[in-house]
Computed example of a mutant assay.
Amino acid sequence: MLLHFTKMHGLGNDFMVVDMVTQSVRLPTDKIRRLADRQFGVGFDQLLIVEPPTDPDMDFRYRIFNADGSEVEQCGNGARCFAKFVRDKKLIGRDTIHVQTAGGNIELNILANGEVSVDMGVPRLVPEDIPFRAQEQRPTYDLRIDGEEYEVSAVSMGNPHAVLQVDDVNRAPVERLGSVIEQHKRFPKRCNVGFMQVLDKAEINLRVFERGVGETLACGTGACAAVVAGQLQGLLGDDVRVNLPGGTLNIHWPGEGHSVIMTGTASRVFEGQTRL
């Protein structure tokens, strides 16, 4: 059968988006891996699936699969693309969209300038909720890797993140250290790893090694997690410009107990179909 899809990206973090509201297909892990292959398939960082909700208060269910076929809880750049996709496909007519995810319910808002603002929910900081193995909640934790100690923050934005402060993201060992921290035993569900360079209270540079993918050009939940981590350490204010290799996101977080609001662009690349 033919599978119809849309290729999209959020600041270069690219997605294959599939409407499972008007079409019905089965995509097992091995098929997702083949579709993700950049030489022999469509090629993407994540596969995004739009489904009818199981919660009657939500408009859609949003599912995310990494290039390795693993299903994950949340993807911020994908959420913005999701909002543009369902509006462009006329699956909904409203600018405010309520979406069910494995990491919790989120609210998407399409702005007049075409950007999408996403209420990413309240960050989870209690270690067992991330999940992260620690005796108590702290702004930072010491992580032992190959005989060396690294200071990291641990935050969940519906998916687990480790955030390290670095002097210069261009010289940070993203590939080497990211792959080790992703699979560190203190993160039982693995994690995304952010390398954050603080420029001032209102701006950071960030690179992210994503769980099950590797380094991507942008990571929305990673940007949110970095701002939360920086603010908890007293390094950042409520409104922060996050510069990623693929572009810029604006993050607003008033502090503990409040939702993180992420705003940025979403772009359609092309429409396609592939025979399964």
Results as ranks from 00 to 15, higher is better:
Leu2Phe: 14
Leu11Asn: 11
Met16Val: 15
Asp19Ser: 09
Asp19Leu: 11
Thr22Gln: 13
Thr22Trp: 00
Ser24Arg: 12
Arg26Gln: 10
Pro28Val: 09
Arg38His: 12
Gln46Ala: 06
Gln46Thr: 04
Pro56Asp: 00
Asp57Trp: 01
Met58Trp: 02
Tyr62Gly: 08
Ile64Val: 15
Asp68Val: 04
Ser70Ala: 12
Glu73Leu: 00
Cys75Pro: 09
Ala83Gln: 05
Val86Gln: 06
Lys89Ser: 14
Val99Gln: 10
Gly103Ala: 00
Leu108Gly: 04
Asn109Arg: 15
Ile110Pro: 00
Leu111Trp: 00
Gly114Lys: 00
Gly121Asp: 06
Leu125Lys: 03
Glu136Ala: 10
Arg138Ile: 01
Gly147Trp: 09
Ala154Gly: 10
Val155Cys: 08
Asn159Gly: 05
Pro160Lys: 03
Val169Phe: 10
Asn170Ser: 12
Glu175Ser: 09
Arg186Trp: 11
Lys189Asp: 14
Lys189Val: 12
Gly194Trp: 08
Phe195Pro: 08
Phe209His: 15
Arg211Pro: 10
Gly212Thr: 05
Glu215Asn: 12
Leu217Cys: 01
Gly222Asp: 08
Ala223Asn: 02
Ala225His: 08
Ala225Lys: 08
Gly230Trp: 06
Gly237Cys: 07
Arg241Val: 15
Gly246Phe: 06
His252Lys: 13
Trp253Val: 06
Pro254Asn: 09
Gly255Arg: 01
Ile261Glu: 08
Met262Trp: 03
Thr265Trp: 08
Ser267Leu: 07
Arg275Ala: 15
